[in-house]
Amino acid sequence: MNLANLARLRDEDLAGQASTAQARALMESIVSEERAPARVAPARRTRRALALGAVAVGLGAAVAIGVGLPGGPATRYANAAVSIERAPDYFSVTVTDPAADPGRFEEAFRAVGLNVTVKTIPVPPDEVGRLIGPVVPAGFRGPGSIGVQGVAPCAAAFCGKVWLPAHYSGRVVFGIGRAAAPGEPYADDRPFDPLGDEALDGYRSHGRTVAEVRDELHRRRLKVGYRLYWTIPDGGFFDQGVTADRIGDGWVVQGSRHSSSDTVDLYVVPGPEAGPAPDPKAVYEAEPQWYDLED
C-alpha cells in the first residue's frame, strides 16, 4: 500500500474551501486584529543575561501585547533627524539622519508626549540607523507593553513602529545605531544566537577547538575576545566576557561574533576546569550596558 493512503484526505478533496463563507469570515476576523510587534523587550534588564529560546519569547511577547496601549489625539512631529507620528496605539518612527545630534531625536519624542533619553551607539555597518529599544534600565513595570518593530519597505535609514505607554514615568532609553569607528567596540544589543552566529565568511567556528579558530582569526589578522557560553538547566543560556587565561585551548567554540571591526569574540563552551557556572545576574551586573552609561 502507499503511505499516502493512510491520510484521511488529500488537498484535492478540499478544492474550493478557501472561498467558503466560513473561511472568508475567519480571514476577515484575523485581519481585523491589530498586528502586534514581533519583537519586544519587556524584560530588557535580564534579557541578555538569560536569553531564552528566541522564537518562544517572541510569540509569548506578541500575545502579551495589546493592553494599555497609548491613546489620545494623533500628533505628528518631524525635524531633520526623525519624524514621529502618533497613531491610536503606537508611534510610527522614521529615522532620516542617524548621525544627527541625539537631542534632535529627544526633541521629537518629547513633542509627541514621550519623555525619553536617546543615545547614538556604535554598531556594525548593517545596523546603522536602526532604532534600538525602548529600554527601561530599571526594568519595565506595566500596565502596557513596550516594543519596536521595523517596517519594510523603507526609503529612510529606519522605519518602524514603537509601542510605549503614554506618560510612562520611568527612565526610558532609545539607541540610534551609528557607524562604529575602526576598532571601536560595538554596543552589544542582540542576544547571541547559539546556533547561528558566525563571524567569518566561509568559515564555521561551531564545534571547533579554541586553538583552531584562534589560528584562523590570526591568519585573517583579527583580534580575539572570549566569552564563556554557560547553559542553564531550564534550557536557557548566558554569556560572560573573560580574559584569555580563563580559556582552555582544547575547549569547544559554540559560535563567533564581531565585537568591533577588528575583533571577533569566541563564545566558548566551558571545559570541566572552568568550575561551576556563576550567578547570571551577577555576571550581567558586572558588565556596563550602553543604556546604563550617563552622557
Binding site: 491520510a7 484521511r8 484526505l9 488529500r10 488537498d11 478533496d13 478540499l14 478544492a15 474551501q17 478557501a18 472561498s19 473561511a23 480571514m27 484575523i30
Partner: peptide
C-alpha cells in the same frame, strides 16, 4: 491566505 488556506487546512485535518 487564499493560496495557502487549503494546503494548511489539509495538513491540519490529516
Amino acid at each position: 491566505y487564499e493560496r495557502a488556506y487549503e494546503p494548511i487546512l489539509g495538513y491540519v485535518l490529516r
